[in-house]
Amino acid sequence: MVPADYVFGFAIAVVVGANLYLGPRIASERIAMQWGPNGEPTWYAPKWLTMWGMIAFMAAVRLFIWLASTYAPQHVHGVELGIIIFSLAAAISHLFVLMKARAAR
């Protein structure tokens, strides 16, 4: 376990906390996932997939990073920085999506 995994664990905790706090406050069963240049949503995903799929996605990316750094270390550089940046970007973007969904009422 690298020290960056503490940031990853914190990011997972933030995502779970946001799901538990903001989930009941989102009225719609579908959540906008991407917005076009005009500010309108371009596609939607089911609420449960949007909320809990992020945790599965984050775990899959972390597993991929671990596999790459274990089995092909000569091709992997800056693992800790990559984990930190990915963890923070994933948690912040997840919060953004959930807060936009809550405000959409």
Rank of each mutant, 00 (worst) to 15 (best):
L20I: 02
L81W: 11
L63P: 05
M1P: 04
S69L: 03
R102A: 09
S28V: 01
A27F: 04
V16G: 00
S93T: 15
A104H: 11
S93Q: 12
I83G: 04
F64W: 05
H77D: 10
H75Q: 08
P73D: 04
P73V: 04
L81D: 07
P41T: 02
H75S: 10
G78R: 05
R105L: 07
M33T: 02
V15A: 01
M54C: 10
H94D: 09
A56Q: 05
D5K: 00
W66D: 08
I85W: 11
A4P: 01
M33R: 03
A32L: 04
F96E: 06
E29T: 15
H75W: 12
L63F: 14
G39M: 15
L88Q: 09
W48T: 13
V79H: 00
W48I: 13
G17Q: 12
A18G: 10
T50W: 03
W43C: 04
M58G: 09
F10K: 02
R30F: 13
V76H: 03
P41K: 07
L98M: 15
L67A: 12
V7N: 14
A32H: 01
G17I: 12
D5T: 01
R102F: 00
G53R: 06
W48L: 11
I12Q: 14
I55G: 10
A56D: 03
F64A: 10
E40W: 00
T50H: 10
N38W: 05
I12P: 02
D5R: 00
E29L: 04
I26R: 06
Q74R: 05
S87I: 02
A45R: 15
R105T: 07
M1N: 05
A89F: 12
M1Q: 04
A32F: 01
I26N: 06
V61K: 03
F10P: 01
F96M: 06
P37W: 13
P73L: 03
Y21A: 15
A45M: 15
K47F: 05
A18W: 09
V16F: 02
V16H: 01
V2P: 10
I84C: 13
D5W: 05
I65T: 12
V14L: 09
A91G: 02
A103M: 00
V15G: 01
A11Q: 03
L67R: 07
A60S: 14
T50D: 12
A104V: 02
R62H: 04
M58H: 11
R105S: 12
Y44W: 15
V15D: 01
A4R: 01
E80C: 04
A89L: 13
K47L: 00
W66N: 13
A32Q: 03
I83V: 13
R105E: 10
W43R: 07
R30H: 12
G36L: 08
D5I: 00
L81S: 11
